[in-house]
Design a binder for these strands. Sequence first.
RNA 1: GCGAGAGUGGCGGAAUUGGUAGACGCACUGGACUUAGGAUCCAGCUCUGGCGACAGAGUGGGAGUUCAAAUCUCCCCUCUCGCACCA
Length: 865
Amino acid sequence: MDEKYNPQLIESKWQKHWEDTDLFRVKEDPDKKKYYLLEMFPYPSGNIHMGHVRNYTIGDVVARYKRMQGYNVLHPMGWDAFGMPAENAAIANDTHPAAWTYANIDNMRNQLKRIGFSYDWHRELATCRPEYYRWEQWLFLKMYQKDMAYRKESFVNWCQYCQTVLANEQVEAGMCWRCGQQVAQKKLWQWFFRITDFAEDLLVCCDKLPGWPEKVTSMQKNWIGKSVGAEIRFPIENSEESIPVFTTRQDTVFGATFMCLAPEHPIVTKVAENTGQKDAVNAFIEKMATQDRTSKAIEQYEKEGVFTGAYCINPLSGCRMPIYTANFALMEYGTGAVMSVPAHDQRDFDFAKKYGLDIIVVIQPEGESLNPEAMDEAYTGPGVLVNSDGFNGITNDEALEKIAAFLSEKQIGQKTVSFRLRDWGISRQRYWGAPIPIIHCPSCGIVPVPEEDLPIVLPEDANLLAGGNSPLPTLESFAKTVCPVCERTDARRETDTMDTFVESSWYFERYCSPHYDEGIFDQASVSYWMPVDQYIGGVEHAILHLLYARYFTRVLKELGLVTYKEPFERLLTQGMVCKETVSCDTHKFLFPDEAKEVDGEVVCAKCGAPATVGRVEKMSKSKKNVVDPNILLHEYGADTTRLFCLFAAPPERDLEWSESGVEGGYRFLNRVWRLAYQWVETIGACAAYDGGLTVLSDSEEVRNLFKKTHQTIQKVTNDIDDRFHFNTAISAIMELVNTMYAVDPKLGGGNAAAVCRCAMETVVLLLAPFVPHFAEELWQLLGGKDSVLKAPWPAFRKDALEKDDLLIVVQVNGKLRSRLTVAIDTSEDDIREKALSDEQVMKFVGDKPIKKVIVVKKKLVNIVV
RNA sequence: GCGAGAGUGGCGGAAUUGGUAGACGCACUGGACUUAGGAUCCAGCUCUGGCGACAGAGUGGGAGUUCAAAUCUCCCCUCUCGCACCA
């Protein structure tokens, strides 16, 4: 054994040992309590980055900790392997997406192993393998059978750059979540999952997820966007048809003076047909279709619209309402039609002012009288109804109920609920994804692929086309097929593939029996392991992946495949890994080595202009502030890298990169290492002290160390258990080590060596989840014969924590003035007396009369004068 | 505009139920050891005043509750994230 801490040497040694002994392999064991720990699996983009390192380190600590506590821990890893980057890289490098993906997987697997994560690699899965997506196709067929999957033609988000459709969840501020390009609307036939059937349940259950951060559940609630109101039908003049409108303000319906339809609304062209407004309307629709829909642009848009020439009738007031098509009416929300009440809605007010439309006040605020001509903004507050025949004089709160009841009585409307959530569009016009198992037959229409024909394997001989179009529609060997019903030979396969978020919506179930080939998963395994006890990943998936996964679990339950409906018991969303950026006036971002110090000034190496250290931002290639984990692993080793990620910030907060922070972690490990080697001669031969504190008759230092040891066990255990606050857990271990440095096991006689042994063992055991290789090596040094992971997590002795004296803080008027040390059994009265007669205290009390003395048990005395 | 979170030394961050603010680490300063030190060990390190004992101020700002507030209540400011022409 080398006496110098050499991370490279010991890390590869122990990684090999773990692999050779299959230490992390698990199987269902009914005698043991299970713990399923899952981190979000990575997309195999090429290399592990610091974000992965942080995410997986946090998970690994918990996995190892739970193992030491005796749990049967499932800790799997796999690859979210379908997706666009593989296609882009394949085109750029003239290779195949599969080759690129598998090479990346091999590389990244090695990197993960190099960091010493405790995965059960026997369970590794990759979603691009037919063994995996076969069951996804099977599930699709089941969903199709139950009408949970359907096809419709609709306007969808189209990314020109990615040449594919995006789900609503994948559009961020009007831009593609992946490439950042503008998203347009396009009318297409698409496959959808009926996630809206579960909107209410997904929403309500947000409040039944106590183990989830409120941030995430509130984002999901926001996204689902429930609003309660009424649907009201407005009959079109001279027509049998009526326009359904959703509103949350049915109390203002008497004030509705015009109607606004979304430009895409199918009724728009219909009603404009014979009005002479047809051309103007069509021009407007045309204009809207190409218009920039980003939220920033929208904010600057003026309200704009075109009269269709048609009218509808307000069913309550009888008012003749001109029908407009307007840019602020959204087809995606409600029914795509707005009853416009200019007096009580700001957008309607702006629109009415612009086009000279009637404004009728129907709600009067208390003690005021609104005059439509004098108003310069809409009144949206509470008040009493006016101009509302039959409802005048009641408050608008009452009116909400009464008008809704009246509407359904007269059969012109009813109470209803509207959600913002749309059905999940899953068709992607891409190659590198799971094929949708459907056949289009000229005679039979849509025909599901028979189960026995699964999997529909993605053809490997496809040539990817420049520009990103999918090769599948033109690949006859794939697209051309026989109809399984009528056996026509000119049937066509569905050539769209599934959104990659479908794969990640059920992979955690597949991990339970990853090689099972008789079904989507082995029921017995799933019922043993699921649900996931702890899920860990980035907050960027708060809506996308985490909502889809919750939805899919409900689908599986509905299909009778599982018995639970929430997949993740507890969720931890870890913060980002950040670093400062460097820039100069001409170059927005500089690599650290592009900024050089010249005469004490930091200067851009490219142009010589002064360079400044800018904001701390998430590590990204484009901002040139990434740190490659490989360099860290090479220079400091895996344990230091892990330690830094854990120590620098609590997991849910952003982590700021700091070279000196890494250095500090490395220094700490060396400090422990040296102490262990210094002490081992003395403590190596004895057993750890195992008695109570009261029978320990050694010196103050030794007794202190023993107490500190058990305090540390308690603190570290609590910090990991309750809060995942690894930073404070590690700082507690550092404190213990500092205490140990003040004790010499050789001196003091008595139990000194045994107490020191106990302390050293404790340090190694407590460090084991954080810096596993390091702990294994020192465990071995101390005489451990087996992996430190097989040693039980240390328990603290209550009798070691008991204090024989107490520190009592004495305040005068709430200000700290003195500290007293008293025996543990001192009575309150005695403490009070002692405090009052304390020299310091007397100085501050002086001759002022004492009003009150508060004695808090075992803590403090406050004297009020 | 709506929803959520955050604001504490030079820096990252502690303070778990209202009870010693600044644990631990980094940076910095001093000392020891040393041929040497960018290694190691020991010590100091919120600000202001003072040689010092010590005193005063102090957790974004302002008010309040309390014997006692970083922590609870109200108002305001700043930052981060999500949603948003949502009818």
